[in-house]
Design a binder for these strands. Structure first.
Lengths: 359, 359
DNA sequence: CTGAAAGCGCTTACAG
DNA sequence: CTGAAAGCGCTTACAG
């Protein structure tokens, strides 16, 4: 059908700045001023142009706009570095990179800055660096609350939008929060575990974390307990906080706990450190204990596959990074509105479905 | 910091067609010819230009290219219409619309065409229509196999890329398949049900579908049975095919089945019609029967919430539509390679996590 | 086989 | 307060 000559370029773009200018009897420069609400246009012509814009249902051509602007919008993403204890953060980082790759050609750049999650100073140094570098938007995993707030106050003053990634600080002027609904997530964990329990079973809740003000686990635990209360399950819940992440320390604590509570039938680990607990249970031949925890990390998947971990709850970590960047893009570049919160789904990962999961 | 004058435009783009042209001592028109592999360039200059492109690590500016091209790429999406029995298709349709909205500004347009899934003729009519309309790419839910093949042969002849959505036809020259891994999905269903069963339990597999050559359910059932075989679970599996979708017909069949197999403890419905079965079980007060089925439709969610359905397996139907369109965009516009298969995750939806699910 | 020129739709100094 | 003109990086007739 290629040979059929198509009468193509007779109708030129009937709703560009040119057309508006023509109809309003002004130059395109003036139209441009009105479109961007810049000063220096008489109220009268401004009104006229705006009316024509309405009539024409004008939408600016984004490609042309970006091309002419020629400037690049820069986003800084501040997240924990990826180490053995924070393997989780590989996925959000990948999501940020995917976003960068996708929108770079439209003049948006995403620069990741990785801080050491057990070192406040490393965070401060990065925050300082960023504030000196004139970024147009910030993506932030607010592990260190006070330090984060300081940074964000400055952003607010400079009118730089910022989004929270993976955990939220209430009452901030963030553009949006991209992350899990922690409370409900804990509730789901409880439900899954309860399917394996008797009303009289004993369970253990384990929180393993070093530094960081992370309060996510509190919401998780609240959701978890809510479930047992709601259904009046009489399970005895022991909880333990471990401030070290190495296997030896964790094993020592757990050995101690199991000494006093040998009948524990189920363990809930409130974050991705679940593989360490699984490792302990595996090594100490406690295969009957049901285990549930968080996140799609290689170690966790290993223990999911060998049956030590029964469920992993995941929140599409890669997508969190991607969406965090994209919401700034939507806001800054496309001028779209962005919902104040974007909750990730609560994904249930088992041995059977894990291989098709896209973290 | 705005007042600091930035020495900006001194370094112009050092890797555009202009720069290449300068270095190669040719005009940008010639560079353009080489970039797009058009004929009419001497082997020698072609080689030289290609070398410079290498050196400069040149990547064309997509915005400028689309802007200059001025033409729009048109994608046709052929999927079942959304009716009471095919509510599933609302989500992929929404995904297609989301893609359209997102890439329209780059000159790509996604046109949905909805056929009646129980009327081959409606499909044929649409196929004919599309073949006459010069689309640049096709998204197809291949419910009617022979008719689809006819359409796709023509696409292949005309060199129009096409992608399969939600179900696959083997051995076709499709760009990609976007949809569930059906076999494994059935396997997961079996695993979930088996958690509720004794080794001697009886179960029922129900397939409800009218017309359409859909063979997805076969893979699902194979995966389902594989699980029971693999773990040597002695459960007796009854299966039933119902070629009507109205409640009355389904209820009649099921009444009959339960007459002979009163002890059925679990039902697996191989598609989104699970709400009809749930409705029957609910009405006949068989709340002890475990139920699992497919898809996040309003009716299904209703029965998930009231506890009749225990699990829904979902495959991110909205995203399927979105990704189907985006893979054609990637291929046609961005010139990227696209994986031959993109399997959706196997999502497990329960009463507890459904409200955060993004279908 | 090759190049000069106009143009895509918007933006931005600059001059008035 | 307003406009003419050059330019963003690429594409496309058209002329040679």
């Amino acid at each position: 059908m290629k040979e059929v000559p198509k009468p193509d370029n007779q109708q030129k773009n009937l709703s560009g700045v040119k057309e508006i200018a023509k109809r309003a009897n002004v130059s395109i420069a003036t139209v441009d001023r009105v479109i961007h609400n810049r000063s220096g246009v008489s109220a009268k012509t401004k009104a006229k142009i705006n009316q024509i814009i309405e009539e024409l249902n004008y939408l600016p051509n984004l490609m042309a706009s970006r091309l002419a602007l020629g400037k690049t919008t820069r986003l800084a993403a501040i997240i924990p570095e990826v180490t053995e204890e924070s393997e989780f953060w590989l996925a959000p980082l990948n999501g940020l990179k995917r976003a960068d790759k996708e929108i770079r050609q439209f003049g948006i750049e995403v620069d990741p800055f990785l801080f050491n999650p057990s070192d406040r100073e490393s965070f401060k140094a990065i925050a300082k660096n960023i504030m000196e570098s004139e970024y147009d938007g910030i993506i932030l995993a607010p592990s260190f609350i006070e330090e984060s707030k300081k940074l964000l106050d400055e952003c607010t003053r400079k009118n730089i939008p910022f989004v929270f990634l993976d955990s939220n600080i209430p009452d901030q002027s963030n553009l949006t929060y991209i992350g899990p609904p922690y409370f409900q997530s804990g509730y789901v964990a409880a439900n899954l575990l309860s399917r394996r329990l008797q009303p009289t079973s004993k369970l253990l809740v384990v929180n393993i974390a070093t530094e960081s003000d992370s309060f996510n686990y509190l919401q998780i635990e609240n959701g978890f307990r809510k479930y047992f209360k709601e259904f009046e399950l009489g399970c005895e819940i022991t909880r333990i906080d471990i401030r070290e992440t190495e296997y030896e320390s964790v094993a020592r604590y757990l050995t101690y706990v199991f000494m006093f509570h040998a009948e524990i039938e189920a363990v809930f680990v409130t974050n991705s450190q679940v593989s360490t607990v699984a490792s302990f249970l595996y090594n100490s031949k406690r295969s009957h204990v049901a285990v549930i925890g968080y996140d799609y990390t290689p170690e966790n998947i290993r223990y999911l596959r060998n049956g030590t971990i029964d469920f992993l709850i995941c929140h599409q970590a890669e997508d969190q990074g991607y969406r965090a960047a994209m919401s700034l893009y939507q806001y800054l570049v496309l001028g779209q509105r962005v919902p104040k919160e974007y909750f990730m789904p609560i994904d249930i990962i088992t041995k059977e479905n894990h291989e098709y999961y896209r973290n």
